[in-house]
């Protein structure tokens, strides 16, 4: 990852944007996480990353240029290449139609049986690339190509908390009730967000997720 090409630009009065000219990958993610950590610890500022961008937020406007000039050195440090610590979470999902309002229409659109959809969805280890959209909403990478389906033309007004959904090449978990355009193929009884915990959010970028199938009865016993 030494020959990484990137561009740093001033974005508004108080932020800097680093755009990396590379497609998302596990290697790039590891580098992004290393950079974010290193920027946070050396400059003590707020940093977020997505697929191939890093944003430095709320910087003092008179230090923008100084920080911009410091960044190449920080980004080229060997520290950013160390393997980032990650946890593996096994997340139970009920794929029964009462918990998966779109699974029938979704399977039909793909020309797959429901059991084939469940098999493909549970056979992959996903990577949490970053959080966005809603507090604690993980963007998961690794969805089997056979499960890719463009998001709905008209978003649903209400997607319930814990829904496992697919939009395009991405799959994610709704940590709270929200409108949304993704196809709901299941629901987890696990809560991803609790503001009284520190950290308040179960998953973090870099973590791995595996889904496993549970019955409606098991779902209810999880809740209790």
């Amino acid at each position: 990852m030494n020959k990484l090409e990137y561009e740093i630009s001033i974005f508004g009065e108080a932020s800097l944007l680093i755009q990396i000219k590379k497609e998302p990958s596990d290697i790039l993610l590891n580098w992004l996480l290393g950079c974010c950590d290193h920027i946070r610890s050396t400059l003590n500022i707020e940093v977020i990353h997505t697929y191939n961008e890093i944003l430095l937020k709320n910087l003092p406007s008179d230090e923008l240029i100084t920080i911009k000039n410091k960044l190449p050195e920080i980004l080229s440090s060997q520290v950013v290449c160390k393997q980032v610590k990650s946890e593996l979470y096994r997340i139970p999902v009920c794929y029964e139609t009462a918990f998966a309002k779109d699974i029938e229409a979704y399977s039909t659109s793909l020309g797959l049986s429901i059991s084939e959809v469940i098999r493909l969805h549970t056979s992959v280890t996903y990577t949490v690339y970053f959080m966005g959209f809603l507090p604690g909403f993980p963007y998961l990478e690794g969805l089997d190509k056979r499960l890719h389906l463009p998001r709905k033309d008209t978003p649903a007004r209400k997607i319930i908390k814990g829904s496992i959904a697919i939009g395009g090449s991405q799959t994610g978990i709704y940590p709270q009730e929200s409108p949304g355009g993704w196809h709901c193929i299941g629901q987890t009884p696990i809560s991803l967000y609790d503001s009284l915990q520190e950290p308040p959010i179960l998953l973090k970028a870099g973590d791995r997720v595996v889904f496993y199938e549970i019955t409606a009865a098991a779902f209810k016993s999880f809740k209790n």
């Binding site: 974010c36 707020e46 940093v47 977020i48 990353h49 937020k57 709320n58 970053f130 959080m131 966005g132 959209f133 809603l134 507090p135 604690g136 909403f137 950290p199 308040p200 959010i201 973090k204 970028a205």
Partner: peptide, 10 residues
Amino acid sequence: RVGYAHLGVP
């Protein structure tokens, strides 16, 4: 809220 944007918090 400062410091929680990386968790998706507005």
